[in-house]
Design a protein around this nucleic acid. Structure first.
Lengths: 251, 251
DNA sequence: CGATCCATTGAAAGATGTCAAGCGTAGTGG
DNA sequence: CCACTACGCTTGACATCTTTCAATGGATCG
């Protein structure tokens, strides 16, 4: 949906995607944040409402549960995880967010965030104040629709996770997560078969409703079958098709 | 968020909540559909865009997965369930919707519904075409915010379900579901401790990621502990506090 | 080099699933 | 009106998967 850039006026060369001065208009990720195309002037207007992005170090919080809701955040580089507290006070990872993806939408309902979002590695973030989105949405109907769609997509994704947790074995869950990361990488024109996991085994287990021991054992098993190569956080998928059939349970 | 009434001009007495001619303005459920209050004229405008509601019989579909997205639907009476297909083709119940609650928001993302929604018992539904919502949202900023909040609420609820499925035992899941229904009933000024479940054991198990045998055993166990009385679909909660501590795992 | 954190591995226990049988209620047809 | 059937629900015995507990290995950092 909205992709907001960190704008640093102290630098030059505005057309390099890595440059902090890059605008939403020439950001490499804008097809992800803005799945439907806006007019050039609308993108410029978006640019204007973007607040200064702040690079987060690993472990730093973007926001915490119960903080007042102010903004949506687009991940520009790095990765973050969202967590919420369960009834008994345990932490539950509700999602991992990679470059081009947007967090914070859960905060609207009660005007406070229900999740905490923390950097899994150094991450630069584009922040867009929601009141600006609301104002701009009234002027740009297609932007309003983008926001609706962005939230709707979050709903469908959460429902897919519900299905995953409700129906699947440990192997299916992990295969599905790996495929999800693989797909999201290839959308960003990165390798679909070779990548580094930004999250720990603990995070994976927490997210997938498994213990870290089970996560570890599944990785080992998939490696012994020759489907994966696992070296700490580095993953190489040797047999994408086989991983898919494990994920769907079609064996 | 939006509560839309079935309008039947052939009848009279517009102020009775059971009457089909009742308007959004005097519907008993409007504090649920419209969590924030709109101005009187805005509510009238809402009324105008509402399309004729259709009463569904048990087993009838409101819409099916892959149908083109057109509308949001508010449940006025009865109950429906939403289901989606998992990767391997199995059905997954993603939610139960009671009077005052809204379904269909997941359809926006891809302009097609990803869920199917079917009546669990005779249900009357208020339908609001989404293009009308979009147009009206531009004129009524608070309506735009209502829709955003409604979708955000669906996100937080789905994330709570994720937490439930990821972390909880069979007893916790069922206790939580019962408490959820209890709470939603009391919001509608119905009994929080004595009600009839609209869904089958199969649906409960499917939703909670359990087999029907496990669901049945948990009901039996809770009954033997004196916390519940279970008679097919009829539930009486004898010890709400104890049920709460089971749900949270605080025992 | 030692301490610490994260990950892996093994053995045993526990929870839920599977398979199978039986029960009750509701609906159907004689 | 009764018997029969079908369906949903319950219950038991056993199998399976994941967790729990415990120990070890390896990498990173001071």
């Amino acid at each position: 949906m909205i992709h907001i850039q960190v704008v640093d006026t102290s630098r030059t060369s505005p057309h390099c995607a890595h440059d902090k001065r890059v605008s939403c208009g020439n950001c490499r990720l804008n097809t992800l944040c803005l799945p439907l195309s806006l007019h050039i002037d609308d993108i410029d207007r978006l640019n204007e409402i973007v607040q200064r992005g702040r690079p987060l170090q690993k472990g730093e919080y973007l926001y915490r549960a119960n903080d007042r809701f102010t903004s949506l955040f687009a991940v520009r580089s790095g990765a973050v995880k969202a967590t919420t507290l369960s009834d008994n006070g345990e932490e539950q990872v509700t999602g991992f967010y990679l470059p081009g993806e947007v967090v914070g939408m859960e905060g609207l309902a009660e005007d406070r965030y229900t999740n905490s979002v923390v950097a899994l590695e150094t991450a630069s973030i584009c922040e867009i104040p929601f009141h600006s989105v609301e104002e701009l949405s009234v002027k740009i109907p297609s932007l309003q629709r983008h926001i609706f769609q962005l939230m709707s997509r979050e709903i469908t994704q959460d429902q897919q996770i519900i299905t995953l947790l409700s129906k699947s074995t440990a192997e299916q869950r992990i295969a599905t997560l790996l495929l999800s990361i693989s797909t999201r990488n290839s959308r960003r024109h990165l390798s679909a078969t070779s990548f580094s996991l930004p999250m720990s085994r603990t995070d994976i287990g927490n997210f997938l409703g498994l213990t870290i021991e089970t996560v570890s054992r599944v990785f080992t098993r998939l490696q012994k079958q020759g489907i994966l190569e696992v070296n700490r956080k580095d993953i190489v998928i040797n047999d994408l098709d086989e991983l898919r059939s494990i994920a769907t349970g079609t064996e």
